[in-house]
Amino acid sequence: MSITQQLIHNAGTYWQDYIHHSFVQQLANGTLPKACFQHYLKQDYLFLFQYNRALSLGLYKAENFAQMKAAHEAISALLHEIQLHIQFCESWGIDEQTLFSTEESAACVAYTRYVLDAGMTGGLAELYTALAPCAIGYAVIAKHIVEGDVSPATNPYQAWIDTYAGEEFQTAAQHAIATLDALCADLSEAQLTKLQSIFNTATRMESAFWQMGLDLS
Rank of each mutant, 00 (worst) to 15 (best):
V109A: 08
G148W: 07
L131G: 06
F65P: 13
M212R: 02
A182N: 09
A70P: 07
Y60A: 14
E63H: 14
L32R: 09
A74K: 05
E168F: 02
I141L: 04
F100N: 09
Q87G: 14
A11E: 03
T4P: 06
Q43S: 12
G166V: 01
P152K: 12
A172R: 06
Y138P: 07
C108I: 01
T193P: 03
Q38K: 15
I141E: 06
L216A: 00
T201I: 00
F100L: 12
Q5N: 15
I177M: 05
L183Y: 01
E63D: 14
A110V: 03
Y60I: 13
S76R: 14
L214G: 02
A106S: 13
L46P: 12
D44N: 15
N52I: 15
S91G: 11
L195I: 06
W15T: 05
E104L: 11
V24A: 08
T112E: 02
Y60H: 08
V150W: 03
T98A: 15
H21L: 11
L57D: 03
M68Y: 11
C134T: 12
P133V: 02
T163N: 03
L127M: 03
A142R: 03
I8P: 00
A139Q: 05
H39M: 12
G213V: 03
I82S: 02
Q174H: 10
A110N: 12
T129R: 07
L192T: 09
C89P: 02
Y164V: 00
E167Q: 04
G137C: 04
L214W: 01
S217G: 07
K194R: 08
I136R: 06
A182Y: 00
K194Q: 08
V150S: 05
C134D: 09
I136F: 06
D215T: 01
Y18C: 11
S151M: 06
S197C: 09
F23L: 12
A153R: 08
C36R: 10
G30P: 06
S101K: 14
I75R: 02
C184M: 14
W15C: 07
Q158N: 07
Q87S: 11
H21A: 15
I82F: 04
H39E: 11
I86V: 15
G12E: 12
R113Q: 09
D162V: 01
I75A: 05
Q26A: 10
S56W: 05
Q26S: 11
E104Y: 06
A190K: 09
Q87F: 04
L59F: 12
D162I: 00
I145C: 03
K194S: 10
A71N: 10
A110I: 05
T129G: 06
Q5M: 13
L131K: 06
G30K: 06
Y40R: 13
